[in-house]
């Protein structure tokens, strides 16, 4: 708490200490979500610059970890959305809760996975998983990432994404359903 207060009072050394405390987690999340060191570094950069600029607004109502993660997840969502809009032949609709639904991603595509007997090494399998994850909507991708890979509670995920626990739960449900369809041939 002292460190945060000192950083709020303008201490650069205190802010640097906070950066060192959280940078590993921030980079790990951004790297796994974007799959690119370049994008992860940009997100890291922008997240901590924002944190530096707005640390005075931190009110200790949640943990600092949740606050910094909220900034990072917003930047990652922007990045995932930009990637999505660059993708060709995509049909995206917005559902009632404001979530994007990728119509194509929900259609099963077994062509490339039609030979289950083929032995896939871990690298190829990892690429397939990454490809399936990239077909989720940015929000689904984010909820799945935070729950499955980062092990956060749905309530915390809801707080980070400015939504309710119930919406986070439904988004996780949709994400797992889509992933199962995408990866059906791999089991």
């Amino acid at each position: 708490m002292e460190l945060i207060r000192e950083a709020q009072a303008g201490s650069r050394a205190a802010f640097d200490a906070l950066v060192r405390q959280y940078e590993q987690q921030v980079l790990r999340l951004a790297l796994h979500l974007t799959g690119s060191e370049h994008d992860a570094e940009d997100i890291y950069q922008e997240a901590f610059l924002k944190a530096f600029r707005y640390i005075g607004n931190f009110r200790f109502e949640c943990s600092f970890y949740t606050w910094i993660y909220r900034i990072v997840t917003n930047l990652c969502l922007d990045q995932l959305r930009r990637k999505k809009t660059r993708r060709e032949d995509q049909a995206v609709v917005v559902d009632q809760s404001g979530d994007e639904i990728d119509m194509l991603a929900s259609v099963s595509d077994n062509r490339s996975f039609s030979n289950p007997a083929k032995e896939l090494d871990r690298k190829v399998l990892g690429d397939r998983i990454q490809a399936a994850l990239s077909k989720l909507t940015p929000r689904e991708r984010m909820v799945f990432e935070l729950k499955h890979y980062q092990g956060l509670r749905l309530r915390t995920i809801g707080e980070m994404l400015n939504t309710t626990e119930e919406t986070a739960k439904n988004t996780l449900f949709r994400a797992t359903k889509k992933l199962r369809t995408q990866l059906a041939g791999l089991r």
Binding site: V19, R20, E23, Q24, L27, R28, L31, H32, E37, A40, E41, Y44, Q45, F48, L49, R122, L125, G126, R128, I129, Q130, L133, H148, Y149, Q150, T176, L179, R180, L183, L186, R187
Partner: peptide
């Protein structure tokens, strides 16, 4: 699915990468 998803594990960022990012920041 949970087992399959382990094939794309979360990896710790390389220390050089962390140092480079911090320097730029």
């Amino acid at each position: 699915l949970k087992t399959l998803a382990k094939a794309y594990p979360v990896v710790e960022p390389d220390p050089n990468f962390v140092a480079r990012s911090r320097m730029r920041l």
